[in-house]
Measured scan of single mutants.
Amino acid sequence: GIDPFTGEAIAKFNFNGDTQVEMSFRKGERITLLRQVDENWYEGRIPGTSRQGIFPITYVDVIKRPL
């Protein structure tokens, strides 16, 4: 089901994660935001896939912030 505490964002740019914990994505992908890790990073996942990880806040347009 849908978790009411998650947020939502759209990727503004392609992001290629450097490490296992970073999640790569392509511009235009819809991302579920799980939490804000710190002032620069979100943790999120791509709905319908097993992809999950952290990524820079500046790479996405936030539609709804996670609670």
Rank of each mutant, 00 (worst) to 15 (best):
Q36F: 07
N14V: 05
T19A: 11
V62S: 03
P56A: 02
F25S: 01
L34F: 06
R26I: 14
K12I: 10
E29A: 03
E43F: 13
F13W: 12
L33A: 03
Y42F: 13
A11Q: 00
Y59F: 12
R30Y: 13
G7P: 06
Y42M: 12
Q20K: 13
T19P: 07
G28R: 03
K64P: 05
R26P: 02
G7Y: 13
S24V: 03
A9Y: 05
N14S: 09
P66K: 06
T32Y: 07
R51P: 00
K64W: 04
A11W: 01
E22A: 07
G28W: 04
D61Q: 15
F15R: 03
S24F: 04
Y59M: 14
K64A: 04
T49F: 03
I46T: 02
G53T: 01
Q36C: 11
G48M: 07
L33G: 04
R45Q: 10
W41N: 08
E8V: 12
F25E: 01
E43H: 09
T32L: 10
P66R: 06
T6G: 07
I2A: 14
V60A: 04
G17P: 06
N16I: 13
P47C: 08
T19C: 14
A11T: 03
S50K: 11
I57L: 09
Q52V: 09
N16V: 15
R30A: 08
E8Q: 10
M23G: 01
E39V: 11
V60N: 00
K64D: 10
A11V: 02
T49P: 02
P56Q: 03
V62K: 04
N40S: 11
G7R: 08
R65L: 15
A9G: 12
I63V: 09
D38W: 07
T6P: 13
S24P: 08
L67F: 05
W41Q: 06
I2K: 13
I31A: 00
P56K: 04
I54G: 01
W41D: 02
G7W: 15
Q52P: 01
G17V: 03
R30N: 07
M23H: 01
N14L: 04
I57V: 13
P56Y: 02
T19G: 13
R51L: 04
V37R: 04
I10Y: 07
G7E: 08
L34Q: 06
G17M: 04
E39S: 10
N16F: 12
F25Q: 01
F13K: 11
D3E: 12
M23S: 01
F55L: 07
I31Q: 00
D18Y: 13
D61R: 11
P47Q: 11
S50W: 08
R30F: 12
Y59T: 08
I54V: 11
V62H: 04
L34D: 05
S24C: 07
P4N: 13
E22Y: 10
G1I: 13
L34R: 03
K12A: 07
G17A: 14
D18R: 12
R35D: 04
I46N: 01
R45S: 11
Q52D: 03
R30Q: 08
V21Q: 13
G7L: 07
T32G: 05
T58L: 10
G48T: 05
Q36H: 07
E29C: 03
V21E: 14
I2G: 14
P56M: 05
D18I: 15
D3F: 10
T19I: 08
A11F: 05
Q52C: 13
R65C: 15
Q20N: 12
A11N: 00
V60Y: 00
G7N: 08
E39I: 09
V37Q: 04
D18C: 15
I10L: 09
N40F: 14
F13T: 10
V37F: 08
Y42T: 03
Y59R: 05
F25D: 01
P47V: 10
F25G: 01
A9L: 05
G48S: 06
T49Q: 05
T49G: 06
D3S: 10
E22V: 04
F5M: 13
I31K: 00
R35I: 05
Q36W: 07
L33N: 04
G17Q: 05
A11G: 08
P47W: 08
I2R: 10
E22D: 06
L34S: 05
G7K: 08
R45W: 09
Y42R: 01
P4M: 13
L34H: 04
K27H: 12
D61Y: 15
D18T: 13
F5V: 09
P66M: 07
G1A: 13
D3P: 10
R51G: 02
I63N: 04
T6E: 11
I63W: 05
Y42I: 06
D3R: 07
G28K: 03
T32E: 15
E29W: 03
T58Y: 12
E22G: 06
P66Y: 05
F13L: 12
K27T: 10
G7I: 08
G28H: 05
V37W: 08
I10Q: 05
I46C: 02
P66D: 13
V21D: 14
R51E: 03
T58K: 10
Q36P: 07
R51I: 06
L67Y: 05
F25R: 00
Q36S: 07
E43M: 12
L34E: 04
V62W: 06
R26K: 13
V21Y: 14
D61M: 12
P56D: 04
G28M: 03
I31D: 00
I54Y: 09
G7A: 06
L33T: 02
F25A: 02
D38H: 08
L34P: 00
I10T: 06
Y42W: 14
T32F: 07
R45F: 12
N40Q: 12
T58E: 14
N14I: 04
F5R: 12
L33P: 01
S50L: 11
E29V: 03
N40L: 14
E22M: 10
I31S: 00
F55P: 01
G44R: 00
F25W: 02
V62A: 04
R65K: 15
E22Q: 11
R35E: 05
K64R: 07
L33C: 08
W41S: 06
V21A: 13
R51T: 03
T6D: 10
E29P: 00
F55R: 00
R26W: 09
R30V: 11
I46H: 02
G48L: 07
I10W: 06
R30D: 03
V21L: 13
R26L: 14
N14E: 10
L34K: 03
R45Y: 14
I31T: 01
T19Y: 08
G53E: 00
S24W: 06
T58D: 13
K27A: 14
F55Q: 00
R65V: 14
I10G: 01
G17T: 06
G44L: 01
P66C: 10
E39W: 08
D61N: 11
E43L: 14
T32D: 08
R45V: 10
D61C: 15
E43V: 08
I31F: 01
I2F: 14
K64S: 04
I57G: 11
K64N: 06
V62I: 08
G44K: 00
P56E: 03
T19F: 07
T58C: 15
D3Q: 11
Q52F: 11
R30I: 11
V62N: 03
I31M: 04
E22C: 15
D38C: 15
Y59P: 00
R30C: 10
Y42P: 01
E43N: 04
V60E: 00
K27N: 05
D38P: 02
F15W: 08
F5S: 12
Q52S: 09
I57Y: 05
I46R: 01
S50I: 11
Y42Q: 02
K12P: 00
D61H: 15
F55S: 00
R45P: 01
N16E: 12
D38E: 07
A11S: 04
R51F: 04
G28L: 03
F25I: 07
G28P: 00
P56I: 03
G53W: 01
L33K: 02
D3I: 11
D18K: 11
R51W: 02
R35C: 12
S24I: 03
G53K: 00
L33W: 02
S50E: 11
V21K: 13
Q52R: 11
G1W: 09
G44C: 01
Q52W: 10
A9H: 02
F55T: 00
P47E: 14
E22L: 07
Q36K: 08
G1Q: 12
G48Q: 06
F5H: 15
T32W: 07
D18N: 14
K64I: 05
I54S: 03
N40M: 13
Q20D: 14
P4T: 12
K27G: 05
I10R: 06
K27M: 09
G53R: 00
S50R: 11
G1D: 14
I31R: 00
N16H: 12
L67N: 15
R45D: 02
F25H: 02
I54L: 11
N14M: 06
F13Q: 13
P47A: 11
S50P: 10
T32H: 08
Y59N: 05
F15H: 05
Q20E: 14
D61V: 14
T32I: 15
T58I: 14
E8N: 07
Q20T: 10
I2V: 13
E39H: 10
G1M: 11
T19Q: 10
R65G: 15
V21R: 13
R45G: 05
N14G: 06
I54K: 07
K12E: 03
V60P: 00
D3M: 11
N16M: 12
I46E: 01
G48V: 02
K64M: 04
T6W: 12
P4D: 14
Y42K: 00
P4W: 15
T19R: 12
T32M: 08
Y59W: 06
I57K: 11
E29D: 06
Y59H: 12
N40A: 10
